[in-house]
């Protein structure tokens, strides 16, 4: 079965209209996963609905409280936005790891999230930053935290007819920074064997006031590891606290052994990545203060 229909709506209401008959449809927020999936036979939509022509879906808007990234905004546009990379250097790192420059011109954080790969690079970075999903459906709008949006490997929480409109990230407070690191055998054009996104807030006295630790490619979905955050909050980010956080992420990790790495290796290396990501975020905070 080949794609029978390609629709390019220019508004959200047209997009909703385009799928109202219930035919098997796929949203195209860039297509860098969808087209490969169709070619491999893993995806077989009768209809593809392009989201790139809807202004709200490609917009990036920033106000005092939040940063809103349209679900189909390209990684390139996010990476070249005047503010986003400095507000969320870790999220920028994650998006910059996806594909090549050419791919980044098409692919989107929203698409990376909806594709729901366990190894997606942007998902742990979004979770670490407390991103929320604004979802529009036939029955109106709802909000969902990114960590709850992915429900299984390549499965997301969207009901039929629902559309991810944008990702809303709270603006980081003073003394906050993030970082994302992944392990791949190659330097690029590769897929994470393990990934770690962290966001921490450190007060003037060096005390960790808030933390979010997310890990990828070590479980069916990216995980927010509360126990790791608890180990860090209230500490001076000393070795004991970091060791406890690493122990917590290794306990939370539930990886498989496959062609990309053994379960033992993934469990080990995700701890290494969390340690290094924490150090990197901490350096960014120190640098911002100096």
């Amino acid at each position: 079965m080949a794609v029978q229909e390609f629709i390019s709506p220019t508004s959200l209401s047209e997009a909703q209209q385009a799928v109202s008959d219930g035919a098997v449809s796929s949203w195209l927020a860039g297509g860098t996963d969808l087209l490969v999936g169709i070619r491999l036979g893993a995806r077989d939509p009768a209809r593809v609905v392009d989201l790139k022509q809807i202004p709200e879906l490609t917009a990036i808007e920033i106000d005092d409280a939040s940063v809103r990234i349209g679900a189909a905004a390209s990684a390139f546009d996010v990476l070249h936005n005047s503010d986003v990379p400095s507000l969320f250097p870790g999220l920028a790192e994650a998006l910059d790891l996806i594909g090549s420059t050419q791919i980044q011109g098409r692919c989107s954080a929203g698409g990376n999230l909806c594709n729901a790969s366990p190894a997606a690079d942007s998902i742990p970075a979004l979770i670490a930053n407390g991103a929320q999903c604004r979802i529009l459906g036939p029955d109106g709008e709802r909000m969902l935290a990114v960590e709850d949006f992915v429900v299984g490997p390549n499965q997301n929480a969207l009901a039929p007819g629902e559309l991810l409109v944008e990702l809303i990230l709270p603006r980081p407070t003073a003394g906050t920074s993030d970082s994302y690191l992944r392990l791949t055998p190659r330097t690029e054009m590769d897929i994470a064997v393990a990934g770690a996104g962290v966001s921490i807030t450190v007060d003037e006295s060096g005390n960790c006031a808030a933390a979010r630790v997310a890990i990828g490619a070590v479980a069916p979905t990216a995980l927010l590891v509360d126990a790791a955050a608890e180990a860090l909050v209230g500490s001076q980010l000393d070795q004991a606290a970091i060791d406890a956080a690493v122990e917590a992420v290794r306990a939370a990790a539930a990886p498989i052994s496959d062609k990309r790495g053994t379960a033992e290796y993934r469990t080990h290396v995700v701890g290494v990545l969390v340690t290094r990501a924490l150090a990197k975020a901490q350096d960014r905070i120190t640098e911002a203060r100096s």
Binding site: P185, R186, T187, E188, M189, D190, K259
Partner: peptide
């Protein structure tokens, strides 16, 4: 460093593409 044919127990190649059959890229 990385290149290797990986077969499963049924004799099916598990990495028949450049994503998982890792030839070096320039930045490596």
């Amino acid at each position: 460093l990385n290149e290797e044919y990986l077969y499963n127990a049924d004799g099916v190649l598990e990495n028949p593409g450049f994503l998982d059959y890792r030839i070096p890229v320039a930045s490596d």
